[in-house]
Amino acid sequence: MSTGFVFALAGAVLFSLGVAGVVLIGHLLRRILAFNLMGSGAFLVLVGLAQRQDVADPVPQAMVLTGIVVAVAATALALALVRKLHALTGQLGLPGDVDE
């Protein structure tokens, strides 16, 4: 089994763990970490699967660089929202949604 393949398999595991984390974890900071795990998993699959013959392919590498910057932007926005919610409610979890 090639190194690229191992990366892709690790990516599949990380992605699944990340999605499970986002679904199951209520603590918002940990949920943001879970989202990042999920993103990293997708990046590993993108690069690893394309290089399964262990020859570097620059196209997915550049795509992953783009993806990382997008993930950084999303993470920063998520952190800002969590801090604002914490400042307003003192909670690090989502309050129930009510229509009143």
Partner: peptide
């Protein structure tokens, strides 16, 4: 956009 959204939130 992320920076703008952050500014709009804080």
């Amino acid at each position: 956009v992320a920076l703008l959204a952050l500014l709009a939130v804080v």
